[in-house]
Design a protein around this nucleic acid. Structure first.
Lengths: 199, 199, 199, 199
DNA sequence: TTATAAACGAGACGGTACGTCTTGTCTTATG
DNA sequence: CATAAGACAAGACGTACCGTCTCGTTTATAA
């Protein structure tokens, strides 16, 4: 739990630095689902990535920093949802994209690890909040063509059931389930007066 | 990650054993929120509980086993929801009880830790599923006077937003938010035909 | 190294006590050469001899005590040397008997273990001296028919090379080597005046 | 008894390594006679030498390895015997040097410990044999000016009584005793034909 | 093209925790 | 009521990982 000394991190511009960084992250992504969050030690990662432990510390002074990068720089999923004016279509596409993202093992494991330690690690907590907000903002951007913007509470009503099913129930998220979520969620939007914040 | 040898655990009947067990769990509950899941080492716990590490291993051969006990034998919350025939009242009371339970720091931390390692530890995964099912069954029992029974999908629609708000958004769950969740959820129930499973 | 509490030892007369004692010693004799002196733990011995560790502690409060018994109550070798008036014959027979005794693995191992800790364990030192004196006295008794009695120094000159060869060189003690030792030793006796002590 | 993994040992050239190594050996030499062979735990040694246990394991993966170093790198005794052409003088001087060497408590204790476990530890056995052979070779080198070379059996006849007296009888080795040993030993040499091997 | 700064490899080290083992004592239940 | 079964404290074992600190060597950028 001791905070490591904050040394100067490698300059991101340097091509050698990028090479090292990308190689390590790739290996980490491959390794994480195999060995689990607690098994992804710097010792193992250094050995597999053909790098010195020292190099890892230079790039990611904290294990949390490494996990952030794994979550944030998840592999491109290609099917990023497009903006649209049909709210149902946008919400459905977005939930499916969320489902896809969380299904990538490395991202999934890293995200859960960050969440678990967020209560006792301010950095992790900050990262988590930032990710949440990014998601929220991004979704509202997708909704712009429809002229509708939703509140944070409504946003939670949308994605909450999906993530709960995946992480907590450890069950499948079928297309039917997504449909049900969206259907229910739309009724709420229709019933709501403006402003629709539940304070 | 190596699975420790499964030695014979202390006989639960023995009063000496119970004394030790309770004392350790109490100390663990106190310690966990302070030091975080990774900080709750057997070394520290042994020292604080005035017990040998060996004794800890006898009682909980795996760290996961200890975490289970922390989650399952959470402190009594007193306000356990009562069965009733008003679905809205039952659901609201149940969500508030869930909120209360997850607000106990030790339970909260332990639950998150178990969740995080469930992907790579079958024991944790099993425990998680069992907890989920217990919650589901318990809720339906509360609903019995109303003559209504809900599906697992509907159950997820109910509690998903609340836990997502707590764990992922790391935001507050206000009474108003709970009301909104329940209200939306009730519309789904009313719209649904029988059977209401979303397959 | 802590000196164990000295509890009351079992009464040697009790047949049950003897049964236990003999069984344990037999198992220990079998075990010792297999696992080595440091591997002969009370835990292992108790398990193999179907006895509680407590019982072992009652019989031999100290590990050294157990080793003594193993050395002193070595198995009967049958060919114990007979007294005689031919000094060469007696000495040769005695050396061969010594060689035989030390070749019993359990005795050999136990004796070496006792020797090694004699410097730091007064009990072991005392036991060692006693064994030495017994051997010395016994040998002189064998010599009585010949009318010759030897000094301790002369005794050491006789058996010293044999034990050195066995324990330190870790080489074979052939009959020819024993003959050479005895021959050389006899010249010393003949040259010596009376008293033949080298002070 | 399980053979510890043989990891790479520190590079002997490194001055930092030598510093550590020498400091530890010095402390061990001081400690060994005080606490005995079984009391010289890595835990104690690490504490006293202001070194981590891990460092000890890096340098001496086996306790036996440490003991070897203690025996082999015994402190210089200064009075190492000189070659000569008077066999009696050389033998006497060599025995006195042997007596001196074995009187150094640390060497004495370490040597006995190695001997005791030689039966069950091949490494110790090998080390013991090597030490024996070194002594034998060294003695014959001292004898070179005299034109005489002795067999291993004759060598054992020389040093056997001295070490037996010291280790087994636990008695004093006086100058007179050494004289007696040498005198007897010389008669054997004179009587012997060439070659003087007792096969 | 060469200096000069950085990133990196190699590896020793102090710490801390792990999971296991043995020891000697003490407690509990049982026959 | 004595004894086995076994829980416990104490502490060593051998291992693993962490975070730091040299000290050389390689690589990239700037002079």
């Amino acid at each position: 739990m001791k905070q490591p000394l904050h040394r100067r991190q490698p300059t991101p511009g340097n091509p050698r630095v990028q090479r090292t960084r990308n190689r390590v992250l790739a290996v980490a992504r491959e390794l994480l689902p195999q060995v689990g969050p607690s098994g992804l030690t710097y010792a193992l990662l250094a050995e597999r990535a053909d790098v010195t432990r020292q190099t890892l510390y230079r790039h990611w002074p904290t294990r949390a920093a490494l996990l952030f990068d794994l979550v944030l720089e998840g592999p491109d999923l290609g099917t990023y949802p497009q903006p649209g004016n049909d709210v149902r279509d946008v919400a459905t596409a977005w939930l499916k994209s969320l489902r896809a993202g969380v299904s990538v093992p490395a991202v999934r494991t890293a995200a859960l690890a960050v969440t678990a330690q967020a209560d006792h690690d301010p950095d992790s907590a900050r990262a988590l909040v930032r990710i949440s907000e990014d998601r929220y903002t991004g979704f509202n951007q997708l909704l712009e063509p429809s002229g509708i913007q939703i509140s944070e509470d409504e946003f939670t009503l949308l994605y909450g059931p999906v993530l709960a099913r995946l992480f907590l129930d450890r069950g499948q998220v079928t297309d039917a389930f997504i449909d049900a979520v969206v259907t229910q969620w739309l009724t709420t939007l229709q019933h709501a007066d403006t402003p629709r914040d539940f304070q």
